[in-house]
Structures are given as structure tokens and as C-alpha cells.
Design a protein around this nucleic acid. Structure first.
Lengths: 211, 211
DNA sequence: TAGATTGTTAATCGATTAACAATC
DNA sequence: TAGATTGTTAATCGATTAACAATC
């Protein structure tokens, strides 16, 4: 069903479609046309039809799209239905917030371990997950076989642990460290989250917005 | 100096340039060519020259760009040099992490107030800033005149407070709530941060990465 | 059937990359 | 001056939007 070479632009719109469609489903909406969805999302109807068609014809002429079906289809395209095991590295403020705030299951992940190097906090629980010593990372990964790592540690510490994690079989990095991971390893994906970049962009836009 | 109609693509690259150039400056680098910067950042040299030229000729033929000067120029273009007062709404896990983790000054902001509706936590300090009752928001904003709001509250609560904040003169929203703010008010800018979207994108890419 | 709306091709628009004259 | 590298125009590429035949 899924074609190859889906552009990054399309992929990045999928979660937003998913969010909107789930919202509509919760409010009991059964069908929606591309025109109506476009109006609600502030997009162009052609774009929505193009996007949905990358993965096959989910609509029906003269009717539109079934909201429930689209939710299920997008969830499947994104792969939310088969959760990836994830480890979190760094249990400082950000690490804690991310682990407590994020609904990992909803996004296709399961948080299986939290690691830090700070002796004082090892053993503490964050939700249902204990903080483990970073020294036990190798052992843990060999047993649990996670394929994803969430990096919530300082930039200086990040680069070392990345190589270690790749050697342990990690295929995806969700990187909050203040540092761009550039990975050349085949089959390894990095999603850099630079909150400071987002905030700087806002700074620019506040000044230059159309008054 | 700054031309009008700078594209969003260019603006969003500026913070990353800034990060890289500051890094080079810290390591004592004085000059860099577009070619060398491109190599380090994984970009195209033409793109870098085009981007920098949106704002004026900062380079010198035969020499390249002065690292220090580019840092200062980009900081000025982004407006990092004149901080905006910001209030944070919602002092849960995410709000706490954001307020403690972010270097606001570095990104052109100054966090002047934190607000929550939960009686039990009002009066607590987060860093040097006390948590205030959301009931005192009007009064506080009229006195302090912040122009930015950081939203770290549930989607259901977000939509109400947005209207209130716009009425109080807020011009920029940094929105972490699980909900797209669509603002039609002229001169109001919203930067939506949807961490769950980012995580879902990673989920897709782990599955579909080139092995 | 008639009306509505998709799927899909074609046209437009904008962003990226290449090329090279200008110039330090 | 000669070499290097920018600033800038032109070419390419990709993404968005428009149009419309297919069809439910």
C-alpha cells in the first residue's frame, strides 16, 4: 500500500492530520470532505487529497473520507500500532518532564528504561520507571533490545553516548540535547528537537509580524 | 538593512546558523567560507550565501565571513539583543522543565511571571520566579506589560486563556499545549511546539529508513 | 439520475542549486 | 597580481495549487 519516496513534507503533515481527525472522531463526526478538513486545518483541499493519495485511495467520490477509517489508516502508516521500545538518557528537569508528560504509547513508543549518571538519583522512580545507572546501559539494552533513545542530556555528554547506543542497536534518536547529531550510519534516524531554535524563531516573528 | 518578505524557510535556518557560528567562535575560529560552513552543517554553499545575503553583504570576496561578526549580525536580525518579557502559563511538569531548562535570555526573552490555577502550588518558587495564581494574571500583565506567553497547559484550558492574553496585549505565543492555536488577530504570532508530532515522525522514519 | 467530491494530471509557485562575473 | 570566495543571476528541482474527468 505505502508507496516509496514519500516526501518529508508529507510525512510531517501526517501527525497533524491524525490529531485533527482523532479530534473529529471524538466529537462523533463520521465523514468529512477534503474541502471541509482544509478549512478547519487552514490547508488547501488539493493538498489534502494529494497527501492522502500517497498511500492509496482512502476516499470515496461524492462522499469524502470516513473519519474513523482515516484515523486508523494514518496510525498504521505512521506505525503507531506496533510500539518501539525506547530508553531515556538523562533524568534532569527535561528528561523528567518528557517522561512524565509524553504519552509514548499514543506516539508508537514504550518507555522501558531511564538512565542517568548522577549517583544520588539512581533508584528514584519516575512514574512507573526507575532511574538506572548509566553504567548498566549496555547490559540493559542487550536484554531488552530497545531500538530508540531519547536524549535529554548536555551537548558535551551527548556525542559519546550516541556511538555507544548505535553499537547497542539503537535505530532512532529523539534528540533534545543542545547539539545537532549528525549520523552517517545507515538505517539510523535522528529527530532533533531544538526548543531554543523554535523560541528564537518566535522572537524574530514577534518583531516582524504584520501589524 | 533587513529586507522585507524573508521566507519562513530562511528564518527557520537562522537559529541553526547562530548555534553553529557561536560554537565556532567559542573554539576560536575567526573566519569561515560558505563552502566550509556548508560542509560542517550539511548544507549547500550557495544556500548559505543566498541566506546571508537576504540581510546584506556580510562576507568579503576572497576571504569569507567573519565568525564573530556573523554571530552578532544574526543575533541582531533575530532580535535576541532586546529581550521580550514572557509569562508562563501552567506550572506542571512541562512548565517546570521549560522554565528551568531554557536559557530564555539567550533566545531573546526574559521570564517575568509563572501562573497556575492549582492553589496548592501557588507561592512555590521555580528558580527565582514564584508561581502566581492565574486570577492575578490581568493585574500582573497590566503592570508588567509582557508581550509573550508560553502555554504549558492542557488543550481544553488553552483556548480560553489565549483570548484573555491577546486582550492583555500578548503578541507572541509559544504553545506547548496539545492543540493548534489558530489566531486570526493581526500582529499575533503563534509558534506551535508539538512534541508528539515530532515523536510520531520519528516512529515513521525508524520503520521506513533506508536500511 | 444529478450533485458532490475524489483521484490525478497539468500549471504555478517558491525554494534550492549551479554558474560565473565582481572583487577583495 | 593571482587565487579565493563572495554576491547575484539563471537553471533546476520539488512542492503546492488548480483544473477537471472519473465515479460514487
Amino acid at each position: 500500500m505505502a508507496k516509496y519516496n514519500i516526501s518529508d513534507s508529507v510525512i510531517r503533515r501526517l501527525p497533524r492530520y491524525y490529531r485533527f481527525l482523532c479530534g473529529l472522531r471524538e466529537r462523533g463526526m463520521v465523514r468529512i470532505s477534503s474541502g471541509e478538513l482544509a478549512r478547519r486545518m487552514g490547508l488547501n483541499a488539493s493538498q489534502i487529497r494529494q497527501d492522502f493519495n500517497c498511500f492509496g485511495g482512502f476516499g470515496q467520490q461524492g462522499y469524502g473520507y470516513n473519519v474513523e477509517e482515516m484515523c486508523l489508516q494514518i496510525a498504521e502508516i505512521l506505525g503507531l500500532d506496533k510500539p518501539h521500545k525506547a530508553v531515556l538518557i538523562g533524568a534532569g528537569n527535561l528528561g523528567r518532564a518528557v517522561s512524565q508528560q509524553m504519552n509514548f504509547e499514543r506516539a508508537g513508543f514504550s518507555l522501558v528504561g531511564i538512565f542517568d549518571k548522577k549517583e544520588a538519583i539512581i533508584g528514584q522512580m519516575i512514574g512507573k520507571t526507575p532511574i538506572r545507572s548509566i553504567d548498566t546501559l549496555d547490559e540493559f539494552c542487550r536484554a531488552e533490545q530497545p531500538d530508540t533513545a531519547i536524549l535529554c542530556l548536555p551537548a558535551t555528554a551527548a556525542s559519546d553516548v550516541v556511538e555507544q547506543l548505535i553499537a547497542l542497536g539503537i535505530k532512532g534518536f529523539w534528540n533534545f540535547s543542545h547539539y545537532d547529531i549528525a549520523v552517517e550510519h545507515k538505517g539510523v534516524t535522528v529527530e532533533n528537537v531544538h526548543l531554543v531554535d523554535s523560541l528564537m524563531t518566535l522572537c524574530y516573528k514577534i518583531e516582524h509580524s504584520v501589524k
